[in-house]
């Protein structure tokens, strides 16, 4: 086994285990804290893919900002009641069977992966030479300007929606 395989194997296995921990913990705060660990591992995988900028964003945005929001929301909930109940819904055996079947499909195509010649203009060498931050910066406001602007409208809609659904009613 090469060092790369060990690195990837560690992160992939850990992410699977941690994901199971996130959904199976009785205490929601524990779930959220495991999710924090999950996000850090995800950042590790991004590093493995030479995407150091994405790894940094993953830590800052997800592990930093979004996790705090999660904890805030959980503080507002009544935890006592949650803790007593079984965390999985009663249809979990069906879900489990579906998930296993899905795994079988994915594993069965694993052998069919053909390594194609390096595709696309953003090759690993090019990104290594330039750095992923610069590559993203170069295309974000030029080639990907339109998606970028659409995303801004999307965020606006999200804000409007949050306000509309949560504001105090004026009768």
């Amino acid at each position: 086994m090469t060092l790369q395989q060990i690195y990837f194997g560690y992160f992939a296995t850990m992410m699977t285990i941690i994901s199971l921990l996130v959904v199976s913990r009785k205490n929601p705060v524990h779930s959220v804290l495991w999710m924090l660990v999950l996000f850090v591992h995800m950042a590790g995988l991004y590093l493995f893919l030479n995407a150091e900028f994405l790894a940094a964003v993953q830590i800052i945005v997800y592990a930093g900002a979004i996790m705090v929001l999660f904890l805030f929301v959980i503080m507002l909930l009544n935890l006592r009641k949650e803790e007593k109940e079984f965390r999985l819904q009663k249809q979990w055996p069906v879900s489990a069977v579906t998930a296993v079947l899905f795994l079988v499909v994915l594993v069965s195509i694993l052998g069919k992966i053909t390594v194609l010649p390096e595709l696309g203009e953003y090759s690993i060498d090019m990104i290594n030479a330039q750095g992923s931050l610069m590559t993203i910066g170069n295309v974000l406001y030029t080639k990907y300007l339109l998606p970028f602007e659409i995303a801004s409208v999307l965020l606006l809609v999200a804000i409007v929606g949050a306000v509309v659904l949560a504001k105090k009613r004026i009768e």
Binding site: P147, I150, V157, A158, V164
Partner: peptide, 26 residues
């Protein structure tokens, strides 16, 4: 003409309709 634009357009549509669906808050 690009899957990224397609996805963002789809989310813009979907997010707005989710909110509209829940508009009768009471």
């Amino acid at each position: 003409a690009d899957l990224i634009v397609l996805y963002l357009g789809l989310e813009l549509m979907a997010l707005s309709t989710y909110i509209l669906t829940g508009l009768m808050r009471k």
